[in-house]
Design a protein around this nucleic acid. Sequence first.
DNA 1: TCGCCACCTTGATCTTGATCAATCGGCACC
DNA 2: GGTGCCGATTGATCAAGATCAAGGTGGCGA
Lengths: 235, 235
Amino acid sequence: MNQPATPHAELRRAYLFADMPDDQLARLAHGMHMSELKQGQVLFRQGELAERFFMVREGLVKLYRLSPEGDEKIIEIIKPGQTFGEAVMFMGNQGRYPVNAEAVSDAHLFGFEQKVFLGVLRESHEACFGLLGSMSRRLHMLVNQIESLTLQNATYRLVAYLLDQIPGGVKHSPDLELTTPKGVIASRLAIQPETLSRILGKLRRANLIEVEGNHIMVRDVAALRKLVHMPPTET
Amino acid sequence: MNQPATPHAELRRAYLFADMPDDQLARLAHGMHMSELKQGQVLFRQGELAERFFMVREGLVKLYRLSPEGDEKIIEIIKPGQTFGEAVMFMGNQGRYPVNAEAVSDAHLFGFEQKVFLGVLRESHEACFGLLGSMSRRLHMLVNQIESLTLQNATYRLVAYLLDQIPGGVKHSPDLELTTPKGVIASRLAIQPETLSRILGKLRRANLIEVEGNHIMVRDVAALRKLVHMPPTET
DNA sequence: TCGCCACCTTGATCTTGATCAATCGGCACC
DNA sequence: GGTGCCGATTGATCAAGATCAAGGTGGCGA
């Protein structure tokens, strides 16, 4: 587990760890444990004492809230290489998770001790700055999500989500595919499954995307981009 | 401006500064400037380079996004003693404001240099932890807002907002009044002014609140609380 | 005092997306 | 090779809240 050449290369993928000094990272990694979740398995529930935070190695994990009536809203979908639960320590509610976490697919995780992390933060500015960066990113994402939920309709939200998910930095991104259960996308976008199905149908008929089970393939990035920049005039 | 006895008592009101070492706070305060905004005056716009962050001394400041069509969604209403714009530095978009800021009423602010703050953060863990705490609070608030927007209807959102705004820690809170323009509340809750007016009317007729211009007085906290815990069955 | 303007209220109607319902299509498990 | 179950699709209807359309009200400056 501790190769001398690339001690913790896998951990470095996470922004949180990217710039952390080697010795501090080693300290964190020393106390870490690995765990595997089966699809649908709950990792923790909202309100539980947060003694650990996590990094996803493989699979997808959803962070979500439930209404009293049982409706679910996914706040964030965590992908491999991302961390979650690391911001909890500083919450007013002295260390309780503000959301539920559950595996969307079979998943592998690293788990870290909050207490150890706290010690690392006290000793390393790089670690602090890493956490600040990670929290800033999350903050920004949430603000964007609020804007999207309140200022834009369901079609727009879906299109924006698709464009956000595909790597898409470059002109002709090689990978225009997205693999996520539809129910998960619906919950993330606060859309009913029936409505999502209709919107996907509409986009498919317009030859903008292709759908096959869990896979959504983006066919015409340019047209989707235009759809999102031009507001709500639709067929 | 620098009384020796209580050097920066006013600044200490902000969570961000509460536990910052005296000398660091002094350093920040040294470069700070004061500014006054008239009602409706814009402080900064989304996308501008963020060279400063702020603390409100008096008045209200709204942070908001605009849709291409000009619709506004208030993300947060900043009250006296609170800071804003301090989390921007660590954003991926190297220091650009993610929202617009405008005075809701005449306002007094302190402004601080991000650059100086960054220096303080490098030297003081307390400062880092203060910022982490402030960002955590904001994160939590945004998650709650997303839940509220997606899982709850307009009446519920308003009631939850009212209960959240009144100090309300104790049983019989002495101050059950809230003073905010209705348009601002509407935008914060993502409700149309017409709809807000109707909901306020409904609550007023049920003797749960009293409304007089900008003032909303909460009459029956217990009943409102019950309304929020019991879901959506309404008259 | 008047007149203007911004904001609020109230009523009528419309629209988006939710809900209800039926059917279909894998897929696992006997 | 059923059979039961879960998720997706599609159609029909419904409802919360938006939009459109008039008034009302109050503050404020001339």
